[in-house]
């Protein structure tokens, strides 16, 4: 069900929410968090709402979408409430502010009365994010601030800002996209022979913050020289990792962006599907943990320790 409240106020929205609950019992009370999404008004907002609805199947939440409209306009707030089938397992409140109401400060002011009592607040910028998310008025309301450097117009620049402005509670989906890679590498080291890793090479697209981040993570965790190289002909994003050990190297490579191969000395090649992860999947993972991610912070810091290689890594086995 979609209820439109044109030219409205947040107290009218709150009244309507209570009314909907009382009349139809449409909203359960088991919401575990409030997810505040900040976007520009437009088509991207719908994609992001869909991703949030998908994630809400795992984490029932109240989604507040702050869709900033035209700044050169008369002040107006158009609100919309979506519940039931139109909102996954969540309830979605879209706030379209125009004129002065499209500013960051005013956006935060509209969000505050709609936050669920006591429940954690997560802010998410699906597209462009503020330079320092923790300084943003909405970012300040949240325990957890999720950004996505890759969906920005200039991913490298956005990622640089993330590194420079990081505080505990920030995460970026470039990190989330690496979880499967990291898990496979960690599992490979779980098994014998238990030898120290003496060096590592990480390759991926030239513009791939995730690849940089994985190299940074390895540099910190392994305390060895890590080289970040470009890859030719890869399927996008990360493409390979090589960990050098005395008995031979562990290699994990994904030439086509879909299937990875794990190669270890004295063992047959093992293949495993390793797709690039979609935003809903990443968001669901992000919402699973609401405490600061120290490992991510360390990996960001580790990027300063990696060396850049120029020679592309050839992925043909």
């Amino acid at each position: 069900m979609i209820v439109d409240l044109p030219s409205s106020t947040t107290s009218a929205v709150n009244r309507k929410l209570v009314e909907l609950r009382e009349s139809g019992g449409v909203m359960a009370l088991g919401r575990v968090l409030t997810l505040v999404m900040v976007t520009d008004d437009g088509g991207d907002a719908e994609d992001a709402i869909e991703a949030a609805n998908a994630a809400s199947r795992e984490h029932p939440c109240r989604v507040i979408v702050v869709a900033r409209g035209a700044r050169k306009a008369a002040p107006r707030l158009d609100a919309q409430i979506r519940v039931g089938g139109d909102a996954g397992a969540s309830e979605v409140i879209v706030l379209r502010g125009y004129g002065p109401l499209a500013s960051e400060e005013a956006g935060a002011g509209m969000v505050v009365p709609l936050l669920l009592p006591d429940a954690p607040v997560v802010a998410w910028w699906p597209g462009e994010a503020p330079a320092v998310p923790s300084d943003d008025p909405i970012g300040r309301l949240a325990q957890r601030r999720i950004t996505d450097a890759l969906s920005s117009r200039n991913p490298n620049k956005a990622f640089e800002q993330r590194r420079a402005g990081h505080v505990a509670g920030d995460t970026d989906l470039t990190w989330t996209r690496l979880t499967h890679w990291r898990a496979l590498l960690a599992t490979a080291l779980d098994n014998p022979p238990h030898e120290a890793v003496t060096g590592a090479v990480v390759a991926g697209e030239t513009v791939s913050p995730s690849t940089d981040l994985l190299a940074g993570w390895l540099a910190v965790r392994l305390d060895v020289k890590v080289k970040r190289s470009p890859a030719i002909d890869n399927g996008g994003g990360m493409s390979s990792v090589q960990l050098t050990r005395r008995s031979g190297a562990i290699e994990l490579f994904r030439p086509d962006g879909r299937t990875a191969t794990l190669r270890q000395p004295g063992q047959p090649d093992r293949m495993i599907p390793l797709n690039r992860r979609g935003v809903p999947d990443c968001l669901a993972e992000e919402l699973r943990r609401l405490d600061p991610d120290e490992i991510y912070a360390e990996a960001l810091a580790g990027i300063g320790r990696i060396s850049r290689g120029r020679t592309p890594v050839n992925l043909v086995p």
Partner: peptide, 28 residues
């Protein structure tokens, strides 16, 4: 735990109790 003896005094540098994202994947 990881399989077998000899695994006891080995700490995997890529694992960290604070790293709660990393799932437990079974070994080969």
């Amino acid at each position: 735990t990881t399989a077998g003896p000899g695994a006891l005094d080995w700490t995997n540098p890529l694992r960290d109790p604070r790293d709660k994202r990393l799932p437990r994947i079974a070994g080969p």
